[in-house]
């Protein structure tokens, strides 16, 4: 057909690309990219700073000794740096927190997702969000001034600084995290599954426990992992109420320092830049970063599995 006859087309100056406008657009895009890439810079900087400050520390203390010794006495004449003394405190408080937060958080999530009416849910979720917003220093005050004295009425031998009180308060603090992530996971379970269960005559409770919770397992597990990560990195509650004396113990009624509490206690004193004390907080920080990083990656991986399923 004649239409197919190809003609050379022309480009009017009006239609050709505006150099100036394209240039400005490119500059803006580049500026936005830099802002976004800043996140990569921060991560790199974190790793770089922690590693570069920790390296001289590990020239002084061998990695083997650091990881296996159970005594942490940076202020004594015989200085020993066994991170296990700090890790024991971190793990004990985290464990207590989980004992509180996992059952409370899971039940709250199941209740909100499967039992509560729309209205109830809309009232409770903002309360949980407000709870997330409470600064940890205030929680620390509660642990020291209210929870520990209360525990002392039951168990009079409890010392002022102990891991039980802050552990419990930390657990309360973490409940909303578990509740909200688990609830999201359960709400993501398709309605058809619920209908299937109800159609067979199951009650709400049976549906929730036998169908919904198993289907949302990976999301619920992810919420636990994120909760552990929170607890491990939590600082002020333990720094205020668990004591700042590094001790290798798993006994909740003992006073002990966590990794985070040690960093705070050193930072509060006079820091000699470049000294072994200064470097030791970076070695401790590096340990903490590795722990939370492993947990976060694990949590991310588990969570991704469930989003892929539906």
């Amino acid at each position: 057909m004649a239409i197919n006859v190809m003609q050379d087309t022309v480009i009017s100056p009006k239609l050709s690309k505006s150099f100036r406008r394209n240039f400005i657009e490119r500059i803006i895009e580049f500026g936005l990219l830099i802002s976004a890439a800043f996140a990569v810079f921060i991560t790199t900087a974190i790793v770089y700073v922690l590693v570069s400050e920790a390296i001289p520390f590990f020239e002084y203390v061998s990695v083997y000794e650091f990881l296996t010794d159970t005594v942490w006495t940076p202020n004594y004449s015989i200085k020993r740096y066994g991170i296990l003394a700090l890790i024991s405190g971190t793990l004990t408080t985290t464990f207590i927190a989980l004992l509180v937060a996992v059952p409370l958080g899971t039940i709250t999530a199941i209740y909100l997702s499967e039992f509560a009416s729309h209205k109830v849910r809309e009232t409770i979720k903002p309360i949980l969000e407000l709870l997330v917003g409470v600064p940890t220093v205030v929680f620390g005050y509660f642990a020291l001034m209210l929870v520990t004295p209360f525990l002392q009425t039951i168990y009079p031998d409890l010392t002022t600084f102990n891991m039980l009180g802050p552990g419990i308060v930390m657990g309360i603090m973490i409940v909303p995290y578990i509740a909200s992530v688990s609830e999201d996971a359960m709400r993501a379970v398709p309605m058809s599954m619920r209908e299937g269960a109800y159609a067979m005559g199951a009650t709400r409770f049976q549906t929730a426990i036998r169908v919904i919770a198993p289907a949302a397992t990976s999301g619920i597990v992810a919420s636990y992992i994120l909760a552990i990560s929170r607890a491990v990195g939590e600082t002020m509650i333990v720094a205020i109420a668990a004591g700042q004396q590094p001790t290798f113990t798993f006994n909740p009624v003992d006073s002990a320092a966590t990794i985070t509490a040690y960093i705070v206690s050193v930072a509060l004193g006079d820091l000699e830049h470049g000294g072994i004390g200064y470097q030791s907080i970076f070695a401790a920080g590096l340990t903490l970063l590795v722990m939370t990083l492993v947990l976060n990656i694990l949590g991310h991986w588990v969570r991704k599995k469930y989003t892929e399923r539906y």
């Binding site: 996140a39 990569v40 700073v49 939590e234 907080i281 970063l289």
Partner: peptide, 28 residues
């Protein structure tokens, strides 16, 4: 890469940011 970093940063304990700032802003 940016995505991974943003979601990762949200999970880093706040005290680690303190150490970063101490090494980088305060001294470097």
């Amino acid at each position: 890469l940016i995505e991974i970093n943003v979601s990762n940063l949200a999970g880093v304990p706040s005290i680690i940011y303190g150490l970063l700032a101490l090494g980088l802003f305060v001294y470097s």
